[in-house]
Simulated scan of single mutants.
Amino acid sequence: MSDVRSRYDARVAAGDIEHDTIQADLADRLDRLADQLADKRLATKSSSLGWLFARKAPPTPKGLYIWGGVGRGKTMLVDLFFGAVPVRRKRRTHFADFMGDVHERVHEMRKRLKAGEVKGDDPIRPVANIIAEETRLLCLDEFHVDDIADAMVLGRLFTALFERGLVLVATSNTEPSELYRNGLNRQLFLPFLELLQQNVEVYHLDAPTDYRVLEREEANVWFAPADDQARKALDHAWCNLTGTRRGTPTEIRAKGRVLHVPEAAAGAARFSFRDLCEKPLSSGDYLRIARRFHTVFLDDIPVLPPEKRNEARRFVLLIDTLYDEATRLLASAEAPPPELHPEGQIAPEFQRTSSRLIEMGTSAYLERAHERRHSKNTSSVVDHIPDASLERGAYSG
């Protein structure tokens, strides 16, 4: 018997979260899925009891596609589920990171096919087979499709994954029928939507409250507008945090790529918006930054009109990665988070980014970030951001 609900109730009892009836119902549903996965594993594993169940092995259970507004608790509940479910071959990752990994593997497989190292002409199915061998339960956070490269791969990839018995649990701000809406050649994407609906139960987490916005004890980490006063405040914070007025330019090298860091010191890095979001960086680049540095300073975030879609998309990926890796962010911007990208193709997705930025400015988030970074034994973690260095107010909603 799994214990997602008991873990949820324990957090409520400890005062970490407020009880929510819809969240509690989802916790019960996740418990049922965890139990189904446990039964499936018992029926198929090679053990002294395995033969007793082999003749009536249960079918692969349907996964879950959990969608709803930002800050409703989707990620929290799936985290509880992932920790409780008795599956050894399981993977929990952000959708963008997963797709980045898939594209990289497909690229390598194409090279092997071309060199004659592997037979066949389809690079996607062998990649899917490898993933299926590694993973029986795949939990994807922030499932969204706005890239044609992702859209064209998903159907063939998940056809093979589901055939191999993979179970998908995904969170999203978008109901399945709205994925890749108005995307290029969307008709080619529609078979994937049918496949998804056949293999997951769609659960609408319609909780009424954005719980991130309720966290009102804020640290001063967001400075708007991005004027001289904001730059002085960030300069002052940087000096207090690192012990130096200017960091040292450095480079992060990985897989043949070189990522330039304008300033780095004492586990912190400083970039401009142009450095990180106006250049063709990927989620993998952002992940390397988040894992290398415990704190990121970001100067001069502009308001992003609809025609700045690529920059807005990269900013979304950046914030998602920093958030997932518990990296602290200090930034200056032309406007508060909700006003950075009010219109455009990815404006609905940007609502999640805005909510996360608000949460990343709370003392509670900074404390969690501190705890998580220390739990990973990250070196050079500064214990706190001195309040005296951040005299200008953060965004407060």
Rank of each mutant, 00 (worst) to 15 (best):
R5M: 00
S6K: 14
A14R: 13
D16Q: 14
I17F: 11
I22V: 12
A24K: 00
L30W: 02
L30Y: 04
Q36V: 01
A38E: 03
A38N: 05
R41H: 01
S46A: 04
S47N: 04
L49M: 10
L49A: 03
G50E: 00
F53T: 03
A57M: 02
P58S: 06
V70R: 11
G71F: 02
R72M: 12
M76G: 04
D79V: 00
D79C: 06
L80A: 09
R88L: 02
R89D: 05
R89I: 00
R92E: 08
F95W: 12
M99C: 05
H103E: 14
M109T: 05
K111N: 10
R112M: 00
V127A: 06
E134F: 02
T135H: 07
L138H: 09
L140F: 06
D146R: 15
I148W: 04
I148E: 11
M152P: 06
M152A: 04
L157G: 07
L161K: 08
V169S: 05
N173R: 10
E178G: 05
L179I: 13
Y180D: 06
Y180L: 08
N182P: 08
L184C: 06
L190W: 15
E194C: 02
L195C: 13
L196T: 06
Q198W: 13
Y203G: 12
H204Y: 13
H204L: 00
D206E: 12
D206V: 09
P208C: 11
T209N: 09
D210W: 09
Y211A: 06
R212D: 02
V213W: 08
F223R: 08
A224S: 12
P225V: 09
A226D: 13
Q229L: 00
W238D: 01
W238L: 03
N240Q: 11
L241N: 03
R245K: 06
R253A: 02
A254M: 06
R257S: 02
H260C: 02
F273D: 01
D275N: 15
L276V: 12
C277T: 00
E278W: 14
G284W: 15
R288M: 05
R292C: 02
T295R: 07
V296C: 01
F297H: 01
D300E: 15
P305Q: 13
P305K: 11
E307I: 13
K308M: 07
F315E: 04
T327R: 11
R328S: 05
L330F: 04
S332Y: 14
S332C: 07
A335G: 12
Q345V: 14
R356K: 11
E359L: 09
E359M: 07
M360D: 12
G361L: 04
G361I: 04
R368C: 06
R372L: 12
R373S: 08
D383M: 15
I385R: 09
P386W: 08
D387H: 11
L390A: 12
S396G: 14
